[in-house]
Design a protein around this nucleic acid. Structure first.
Lengths: 216, 216, 216, 216
DNA sequence: CATGAATGAGACTTCATTCAT
DNA sequence: AATGAATGAAGTCTCATTCAT
């Protein structure tokens, strides 16, 4: 197991005690699911890649879907969740005086995480439409949590006169999809292109600021 | 078969001669693929939903993947293609003097199409990562065609002084992801929310214009 | 397929149209289930014995349990049912003046049937405790139908003074278990012993008659 | 563990030294086997129900079949065996002058035992057809021992003129199946019906006596 | 003695595809 | 062209049993 991969595993699953084999199974599953899709990956394939008997998979995860959930659920709970809570709380606590500083911090500090967790993110995005359980979790997280918090922040900045006066929900949508659009282009659509990350981050921020900022 | 569905079929497949059964098969496949995913839909299920015998599917489409391609390929060729060619040509031909007019026209006039073709678009997006054939087609279409043409237009507007001077590729990315982000939120993420389409379209356009437009 | 076996199949399943392979599957399943028990018989074993692909079994019977039911249910409906209806109706219609004649007819004329259907009867008896569905059917048939009708007949004979005056349910129990006990000993417990069937039938009848008959 | 269950275990296995875990395993196995059948019960299920680790079962019983045998064999050796030896010896020793007294004693004094051991009896009856080892034991016990002894007794009573002159084997069959038929109806077929045990016992005895007794 | 992770053979079942009718 | 029975490879999952701890 490579060091980097070990870290991924630890980052996602650190709280639970994992057998060595369990870790190998998770890694193998993540790789296969993200390459070929959940439905097109067979458990025997995962077993082979993990160097484990097929039965071993089912000792730890009652069904194939359980295995999927074991991979995808923590990403929601541990990665997207903190993302919202920690960073946005800093904003709420006035740690960033200007929105652009917040945006820059958020994008920058998450790029590493996202890059490392890319396979899992891919799996998650693929399966959300088909797993009602995931879908609910996701909607909850995004719609209620992310949108909610962002909307609060936005109202704040609107009061300060830094953001134009359109409904916070619309502002949130435009902001979030711009950031996501950048990350999606960068890491999913064209991961192989040459990107000057600092520059593109700056451009994205400028774009958002111009699009939403209030000018006197 | 409902009228609306018939129209969908005709819109996508009108040039070829489709038997009645073939139409039913396509509709059934589209519905199932978009609901459960390509890999998780069985041909026997499609046959049942289409009201034909299992063998009949394979008389028209040699393999299950052929059936998928028969559904997804025309969307690329006939829907995204013309989208680019027709509308952008109008832009290039100076039919829209200002970008915002073009954006408004493009978004407006495609909303209906997209809504109707939503299931097929979903299937396409789902399968692009796993079907190299599709992936190539898509990259070709988007990367070379869409990005290429849009870049041309952008250079044009940049020369006219309507758009700020950053690389056209970046401008294109920001523009396209903003529009897509809107459509994605509108039709895929939160199709059930109440949307004031005219207003949101306008806001999106304003956002883009502010974000990218040059001010004197 | 042997002639005798064909007849068994026809007798049990004649009304439905069976493919040739379906017939082979049923025969193979009956043989294996009755030899090794339902739970210890694998579908691959049945397929091999039937000379059929394993998938073919599941084309006709959605699950292994469906196959069991397809075998056992008709025995209840078509063999035990008519047994009751036809013969007991004759009794009710006074075709047998004395009970012993009825008993003799009933035992005699069913011995052949039972002998031929023995494997299926064995399967049925084995599985009744574990398949609630079967259990219900059986209780219904035996408790309500058989016991009910027999009780009626008994009351009749009691009025005629041919049977002693204890509750018809008790009489029924004693009669039925005596006959069943005979058939069970004869065909299930000691099928290989030498039996003088006529004589043992007669003795059983005499036993019942003495045990229950009224003497002046 | 309930008191009653402990007694069951002790009754069956008292001579051997059982660890506490062993006792729990046996009880759990008896419960599961009798509810779902031997083949359909998994060892892991038994382990869970017994509150022991999966491996522990195999420390005490080399195979699953060994566990079955450990349950069923004592029932033959210790319950049916003594049943025959003790009681019938009393008969042979003229402790019961009349058959009906013997029958009454036998049925009465065993009802409790049978009720308590019912699950084990069920398992035994279920598995006899499929376990040659059990089958042999059973045939030996029933055919040679029970039938043999009963036949002796019967000849005795026939000499005394209390039983009609038909072959002792036939008498034995009729007697045994009548008693068994009663117990079977009482405890297996309709355990939930309301039974007046004393009365039904008496009726069964009367039935047998009338059916087989000699009248002057 | 006891544990429980690991195994691998094999269970049931699904499914894309073929082919005789 | 259409059917649907048949196939057999492959899929998910179970389970009795072993063995290092």
């Amino acid at each position: 197991m490579f060091e980097q991969e070990e870290m991924l595993i630890q980052q996602l699953f650190d709280e639970e005690k994992l057998t060595e084999k369990q870790g190998k199974i998770l890694l193998a599953a993540i790789e296969s699911f993200s390459e070929k899709g959940y439905a097109s990956t067979s458990t025997s394939e995962i077993a082979k890649k993990a160097g484990v008997a097929e039965g071993t998979i089912f000792r730890h995860y009652k069904t194939k879907k359980d295995l999927l959930m074991a991979i995808v659920t923590p990403i929601m709970a541990k990665v997207i969740g903190p993302y919202i809570v920690n960073d946005f709380d800093k904003v709420l606590n006035q740690q960033y005086d200007r929105i652009e500083d917040f945006l820059r911090a958020a994008i920058d500090n998450r790029r590493n995480v996202i890059k490392k967790l890319l396979p899992v993110v891919k799996i998650m995005l693929q399966e959300i439409p088909f797993q009602p359980e995931l879908r609910e979790q996701f909607i909850d997280l995004i719609a209620k949590n992310l949108f909610g918090r962002v909307s609060n922040i936005i109202e704040d900045y609107q009061k300060k006169g830094q953001i134009i006066d359109i409904p916070p929900a619309s502002v949130a949508r435009l902001m979030i999809t711009s950031v996501m659009g950048y990350l999606f282009s960068r890491y999913i659509l064209f991961p192989d292109a040459l990107w000057d990350d600092e520059l593109e981050t700056e451009r994205t921020i400028q774009f958002i600021m111009n699009g939403l900022g209030k000018r006197e």
